[in-house]
Amino acid sequence: MSALDVLSHFEVFKTADAWASLATLTGLEIVLGIDNIVFLSLTTGKLPKSQQPLARRVGLSLALFMRLGLLFTITWVMGLKANLFTLFDHAFSARDLILLGGGLFLLAKSTHEMFERLEVEPSEDDEKKGGKGRSSFAWAILQIVILDIVFSLDSVITAVGMARDLSIMSTAVVLAVIVMLLFAGAIGNFVNRHPSMRVLALSFLLLIGALLVAEGMGQHINKGYIYFAMAFSLAVELINMKLRTRQAAPVQLHERREPLSGRREGATP
Rank of each mutant, 00 (worst) to 15 (best):
Q51T: 14
F39V: 06
S61K: 04
D148N: 15
E237I: 00
P53S: 10
G262T: 02
R193P: 06
V191C: 01
T111I: 03
V156L: 01
E121C: 01
L60E: 02
I146K: 03
S203I: 00
G103T: 12
L118K: 11
N222T: 01
R256T: 05
R117W: 15
G79P: 13
A159L: 13
G161C: 03
V177L: 10
A249G: 01
F92L: 10
I37F: 06
A159H: 07
L205H: 03
V12I: 10
F92C: 08
A63I: 09
V236F: 14
S233I: 00
L107I: 15
F88I: 04
L100E: 08
F105D: 01
L234H: 11
E258L: 15
A214F: 13
G185E: 11
V31L: 12
V251K: 14
S41W: 04
V174C: 10
I141T: 11
V177M: 07
S233L: 14
L142C: 14
L147P: 02
D148W: 03
S123T: 14
G101T: 09
E255A: 10
W139D: 09
A214N: 06
I98Q: 04
L25T: 12
L62N: 01
L47K: 04
G224T: 01
A210M: 13
V31Q: 02
K129Q: 04
L166A: 12
A140E: 03
E119H: 13
A94M: 13
T26C: 12
E11K: 10
K49C: 03
I168A: 04
H220I: 00
L68V: 10
R134C: 02
F151A: 04
V236E: 14
M78K: 08
W76K: 07
E215S: 04
A176Q: 06
L107E: 13
F190K: 13
A3T: 00
L28V: 15
R193A: 11
V12P: 05
S110H: 05
P269Y: 15
L142H: 11
A172T: 11
Q252Y: 06
D126T: 07
T43L: 00
D89C: 03
F85L: 15
L62G: 14
I34F: 05
T43A: 10
S152Y: 06
L118C: 06
F72H: 12
R193S: 12
T86E: 15
L238F: 10
V77F: 10
G101D: 03
Y227I: 04
L212F: 14
I141Y: 02
S123I: 05
A18H: 09
E116Y: 11
L99P: 01
L142D: 05
A138G: 05
S170Y: 07
I144A: 02
